[in-house]
Structure formats: structure tokens, C-alpha cells
Amino acid sequence: MRIYLPATLAMLREIHADSAVGPAPLTGFAVTPSLREWYLDDDEEVLEYAAFTQAARAALRLLDADPLAPRRRVVLSAEVPDNEVTLHPDLDRAVVRSTVPIPLERLASVHVDSAEAEPDVSAAAKVIMEADLGDEDAQFTVDGTEDHELEWYAVQEIPQLLA
């Protein structure tokens, strides 16, 4: 199963040093039966993008919790065996948990905001909790980050990305 894990650049540094994403359980996002049922479009790419977008939003929550992390969202795409993933529709339609740490070699790619996105990401990280609680102005700020496509990096490029 392809899962999308939210992270920060600070977390990515630790992941690279440890050669694994962990410890488990790891909360991520994926195309789940609940997401398929809820979403109006059955196009696999659209569904994957919906799960990916949820992971990018969760990265804002991680940035809110770590004021020292660079203000860039990070999403890790990983291939995880189905038997190592549990679904959690009680939390949200796309939420899954990996029951084991994910070795670096299972990462398919890394997605990171560009430097140009930092002002919008910083503003959104400051108000993500208010947006989650229904504040429309905060939601508008958070939605502004969706104007920034996260850049794609191969796993082998992590050292250069962190340099």
C-alpha cells in the first residue's frame, strides 16, 4: 500500500540518520475504502492526491508543534505491506497507521515545499489548529498553501536536500 507520511525537514534529518521512519506506530494517509466511498471521483490519481494533500496538511500541524523547524512541509511516500498497515476511519477517511518502523529503502519519494512557499507555510502553521476548529479566516490561510506544489525528490537526494 502506498502511504503518505507527514514530516518536517528536522524529522527528515533524523530519518536519514536512522535509515528508517519511526518509531511505530506511524500515522499516515492513504487511499482507503472510506476515502473511496466518500470521494466523488474514482480516478486513482485523484484519490492519491487527496490522501497526499491530507498528509501535507498534517505536516502543518507538525510545524506548529516545532517552532524551530524550517517552515516547509515534507511528505514521504512509502510502500508498506498491507499487513503492516491498519485503517483508522474513526480518525479520518484517509488515516492509516504503520504498525512497524519503515526502512528508508521503502520510501518511494520525498516531497518538500520550495523556499518560495515558506511565508505561506509559516502563516498556515500558526493557524492550523484554529482552521481545524472551524475558523474560516484560518482555513483561508491554510488553503493558501495548496497553491504551492511540493517538489519531488528521489530518496537518494535526501543528503543534498538536507545540505
Rank of each mutant, 00 (worst) to 15 (best):
L35A: 02
H88S: 12
E79L: 06
P81H: 06
V75S: 00
S114H: 06
W152H: 15
S19N: 05
V121H: 03
S19V: 02
E79M: 01
A94N: 07
Q160C: 04
F29L: 13
S34E: 07
E105W: 11
A163W: 02
G28A: 05
A154C: 07
D42N: 15
R93I: 08
L63M: 00
D132V: 02
A56F: 11
L68K: 15
E157V: 06
A69R: 05
V46L: 08
I128M: 10
E79D: 11
S98E: 05
T86C: 07
V85G: 02
W152T: 11
R93W: 03
Y153M: 10
G144H: 14
A154T: 07
D41R: 06
V100E: 02
R73V: 00
R106C: 06
L76N: 02
A123V: 07
S122Y: 14
T53W: 04
W152K: 14
S98P: 05
A55D: 11
G134I: 00
L107N: 01
I15W: 09
Q156F: 11
A55F: 02
A56C: 08
P103A: 00
W152D: 09
A65R: 12
L47A: 00
Q156K: 14
A78G: 06
D120M: 10
A78P: 06
D113G: 11
E146N: 13
V112E: 13
Q160V: 00
A78D: 11
A51P: 10
A125F: 09
L62Y: 15
A163D: 13
L91W: 09
H16K: 05
A51Y: 01
L5G: 09
A58W: 07
T145F: 01
D18R: 14
S109D: 06
D120G: 05
A131T: 07
D135H: 00
M11N: 14
H148G: 02
P67N: 09
D82F: 03
V127T: 14
V21R: 00
L161G: 12
V95T: 15
M11Y: 10
R72I: 01
H16V: 07
V112N: 14
P89G: 10
V95D: 04
A124G: 08
L26R: 07
Q160N: 10
A20E: 00
H111M: 13
S122G: 15
S122I: 04
A123Q: 10
A55V: 10
A108T: 15
Y153C: 06
A163Q: 12
D147T: 12
A131I: 05
R2A: 07
E45K: 09
D41V: 08
E136P: 05
D147Y: 02
Q160T: 06
A131H: 04
L104C: 03
L68C: 03
E146K: 13
P119C: 09
D66E: 15
I3Q: 02
A124C: 08
L150V: 07
L9K: 01
P23Y: 15
D18G: 01
L12Y: 03
A124D: 03
L162F: 03
S114T: 11
Q156T: 14
A115L: 14
P25E: 08
F140S: 11
E116G: 09
L104K: 08
D82V: 12
A125R: 04
